[in-house]
Design a protein around this nucleic acid. Structure first.
Lengths: 218, 218
DNA sequence: GCATCATTCAAACAACTGTTTCAAACGGTT
DNA sequence: AACCGTTTGAAACAGTTGTTTGAATGATGC
């Protein structure tokens, strides 16, 4: 019911798949559960996308392509504002976080962003084979551009040290994202505080930026 | 072939399952692939463990129970040395890292630790339902004890803020160590530097400790 | 109205999943 | 040797998976 009857079959499949993938993972989600939720026939998936693998890629493409385009544009503008100089580390990651939030039209409802985050987490942890290749082939250039900017803003950190710190940082982001909903529930019980996704991102950004910026090599 | 013929059926199943779960995840690993690798009959899993779910739990129990026992003892000793005072943050995580490394008898071979961490990662991201319950029921007390110590050494950080930072930190550790083999290869190509596992832990510990210790709330 | 195309549908497909069955083999005890 | 409980073995089980089929349906252009 969340997807209106106005949209076409392919979009309804993508909507349903997006939700179910984020909730249960890829292999745990059957085509039958997707088509049932979407209210379409089982064969529609293979007809419109060719295979389940292709559907997975289509789900990622639908939200990752606009995201990378937005990020690239944001980076262009930031560079222009700074006369070709890359912005400081906090701004760089703040920009990243804002670009993520910008993809969610309804900012009061976290679910869209939550799905976005979980999918990103899945992409990192569950992607063996075809998905990993797909993501590398399509979005590696944006990723490398961002890393290069981080590199330029932290010239005091050696390349090797920075390499590891970036992966530490990616790890904290990806893992938190991958289980945001669960963690939020635990936090509600534990600390009696309700954190919005925006709150969490605003804690993650300085966490990452500070850790990357430490001027001692280890 | 990796597991010797001397060990009994149950252990050989656990060895095979451990490797395959870490490599492909739970649902992606079939009982047939496990028993084939272990060189035992298919029915042996249900005979010795009862079900696949129970096998998953047994795999976690085999490495998590000794680990938590070691960690508890190490914490006891550290508290005794400090007259009941919890050690500073760097030492606390250094102790954690050493306890992890201690579980790997063959310190020249990283694969055991890598599997350990990958399983921890799976527990984090893929555990819905039975596994999550199992882990909470069995190992939550050790976990809470460690968190409480971290809490006492960082009184300037609010409980909610610390909650999230700890999960950021766990994420970076689990993610990096879980793909340590792959990342080391990339680093060798990228920065022309060969990092031992110990090197990486020595970068990770201050990364985590510094990030947790930041005195501003966000 | 007719032909042509894309789309939908119910049904079946083969392959794989975890689990069960029951006879055979084993090892120790008397 | 005969008995015992424990363990292994090959085979089958029922259920689910992704995918394919071929007929029915719909809309579009002439």
């Amino acid at each position: 019911m969340p997807s209106s009857d106005l949209t076409d079959t392919a979009s309804r499949i993508l909507d349903a798949a997006e939700h179910l993938f984020a909730e249960h993972g890829f292999t745990e989600t059957s085509l039958r559960s997707i088509t049932t939720r979407a209210g379409v026939n089982l064969a529609a998936v293979n007809y419109h996308f060719g295979s389940k693998e292709a559907l997975v890629q289509a789900v990622f493409e639908r939200f990752l392509t606009p995201f990378c385009r937005r990020l690239d544009r944001e980076l262009d503008e930031a560079m222009a504002r700074g006369d070709g100089q890359s912005p400081p580390l906090h701004d760089l990651f703040g920009l990243l976080a804002r670009t993520m939030l910008a993809g969610v039209e309804d900012s009061t409802n976290d679910s869209k962003l939550s799905i976005f985050m979980r999918l990103l987490g899945l992409a990192y942890t569950q992607s063996q084979g075809h998905l990993r290749r797909f993501l590398r082939d399509h979005y590696d250039s944006t990723y490398r551009r961002f890393v290069l900017l981080v590199h330029q803003t932290t010239p005091h950190v050696s390349p090797n040290e920075l390499f590891w710190r970036i992966h530490f940082a990616v790890g904290s982001a990806v893992f938190t994202m991958g289980s945001v909903e669960t963690l939020r529930a635990i936090a509600r019980n534990d600390t009696h505080q309700d954190n919005t996704l925006e709150d969490i991102l605003h804690k993650l950004v300085p966490f990452v930026a500070n850790a990357l910026n430490d001027d001692r090599d280890h």
